[in-house]
């Protein structure tokens, strides 16, 4: 008897709740665009935020909205790269924006050897804290601390501080150009630059805007803003502002002419540079050329 009573009570409750749940689900039904689920599946699913939306679901929503308006060319998934965007474009049957593959580039070459430490820091190993306290062990107020805020921020294991140089190194194959390191660095030393044809890139590896005589005291490979690079540049891609040269990646043709011209070796190239005339006491290796005597 008691078993029957229990079965009836519980069964009745179950039936009651089932009806309730059914009604609620009908009443408060949320229609989700099935395309959103499909698109989200096409995205990398790493929620890095490089697209400017809150994670991949946010990007998927934006893509669906864009598709409704007939244009998704302004939306780009940097870590996914062209393949991801092409598959999404194919899904919607729409044109996708040209997404240039990018890579994070460190604009500081103040390694332990190039920018020797004059003081010792023993506070927390965190770049942001060190940045709030002082210019740096070498004295350069623009240079890399090497405490690795960028390494912590990288979710793709593409960034590691080399203990020998004290500088972070980007693994090009792993870098998705999500831009997290750009935000993490308190000195804004990272820049996303196009990978370039056959990975050929030329860039100024310095952010120091101090006068040449001052910056050279901190670091042997600082840009002194002399303007020699700008003179040899065949495409006029090197503006110099505040004693600092910057190579415009949009204009640069990666000819490498500026690299041997730099008296401090502040310009780095990712490919070997052929030097025509012999450089005093210099090896023709890329950008490792020591500065001529002052």
């Amino acid at each position: 008897m008691i078993t029957l009573f229990a079965v009836l009570t519980l069964g009745g409750l179950a039936a009651m709740f089932a009806v309730l749940l059914f009604l609620v689900s009908k009443r408060f039904h949320v229609t989700e665009d099935p395309r959103k689920v499909d698109v989200e599946a096409l995205l990398p699913g790493i929620n890095c935020g490089a697209c400017g939306f809150p994670g991949c679901p946010g990007m998927a929503e934006a893509l669906v909205k864009g598709a409704d308006e007939g244009d998704i060319s302004h939306l780009v998934c940097p870590p996914g790269g062209p393949t991801t965007m092409e598959s999404i474009g194919a899904y919607f049957g729409l044109e996708v924006g040209a997404s240039k593959p990018m890579v994070a580039v460190l604009r500081c070459n103040g390694s332990c050897a190039n920018a020797p430490a004059k003081t010792t820091y023993d506070g927390p190993a965190n770049c942001a804290i060190a940045h709030s306290l002082y210019a740096g062990e070498s004295g350069c107020p623009f240079g890399c601390f090497g405490h690795g805020d960028c390494e912590v921020s990288c979710e793709f294991d593409a960034l590691h501080v080399n203990p020998e140089t004290g500088l972070p190194e980007v693994i090009e194959e792993k870098c998705t150009a999500c831009g997290k390191c750009v935000i993490a660095c308190p000195r804004n030393l990272f820049e996303l630059r196009p990978i370039g044809k056959r990975s050929r890139r030329v860039f100024v590896s310095c952010r120091n805007t101090e006068k040449g005589a001052v910056s050279k005291k901190h670091c042997s490979v600082s840009c002194i803003g002399c303007g020699k690079c700008a003179k040899v540049c065949p495409v006029d891609a090197i503006p110099i502002e505040n004693n600092l040269a910057y190579i415009d990646p949009e204009k640069c043709i990666a000819c490498g002419k500026c690299v041997p011209e730099c008296p401090t070796g502040a310009i780095l190239a990712t490919f070997p540079i052929k030097v025509k005339k012999p450089v005093p006491a210099g090896e023709p290796s890329p950008a490792a050329k020591p500065a001529p005597a002052e």
């Binding site: 306290l133 002082y134 004295g139 107020p141 101090e210 001052v214």
Partner: peptide, 8 residues
């Protein structure tokens, strides 16, 4: 010149 803030 570098002051107490650690910066020039």
């Amino acid at each position: 010149r570098t002051d107490a803030s650690g910066y020039p």
